[in-house]
Design a protein around this nucleic acid. Structure first.
Lengths: 118, 118
DNA sequence: TTGACATATGTCGATATCGGTATATATTTC
DNA sequence: GAAATATATACCGATATCGACATATGTCAA
């Protein structure tokens, strides 16, 4: 055994900088492959392959248009990533520190005058 | 040329399910390697290697404690991931759809009676 | 039909990665 | 000092991945 499956999930799909670039382009809207090739400055086959990976994890959808294929973003596939990192936000965000402070304050107050007037 | 650098950034570090597991354990607090070995059920050298990757991207810090090494989470390294994926949230979140509706509504109103009463 | 255009796929080479096993390097305990 | 414990590193094999190039497939235009 060696090297567990990788390209099969959103986390891996997005680990490739070029694939992130592609998604960033598609945020602007539907685009044919050739546009991406020009915008990223990559070889066409390479772009097609990256698109395949993105397609396989559901991050993009394709639509036929004559001899072109229009790729569209499907950000829903990225939700698991968002959900996962979200839980780590408290580690760096000061907002949480301040929220903690407020909560502590509240608790202290409640303990201090348990049930007093107002 | 082949296979661009990978394990060098947070996105790749986190693409490995086991490494995510390790981080998830460390959210609970500082832990020695052996605890992680037990909790993940992996071979010790493998855990050490994954920890090395996480260390190199700054996602964990180490502290010596006798013959043990205590690893601690440093979620700050995950911020770039959060920042990136955040922009895609609008793709799946209904909140944004409703916000768009409200904004459109406001705009329509403003255009409808440009500068009228009140 | 022929040729130009748009895209996907196949093959290949170089290399990175994961996991396993063995071993090195502390550090504590006896 | 010797044995035991905790962790890191080195090496190896299998395989996946990226990028390059060539080529297949499909569509439009003349």
């Amino acid at each position: 055994m060696a090297r567990a499956a990788t390209t099969a999930d959103a986390f891996n799909a997005v680990a490739e900088p070029r694939r992130r670039q592609i998604l960033d382009e598609l945020v602007e809207g539907e685009r044919p492959v050739n546009d991406l090739v020009r915008e990223l400055g990559l070889a066409q086959p390479l772009v097609s392959k990256h698109l395949r990976v993105l397609r396989e994890v559901g991050a993009v959808d394709v639509r036929e248009d004559g001899r072109r294929r229009l790729y569209r973003l499907n950000g829903h596939a990225l939700k698991p990533i968002h959900d996962w990192v979200k839980d780590y936000e408290r580690t760096w965000s000061e907002r949480f520190d301040r929220m903690d402070a407020v909560l502590e304050d509240l608790q202290r107050k409640e303990e201090g005058d348990g049930g007093d007037g107002e």
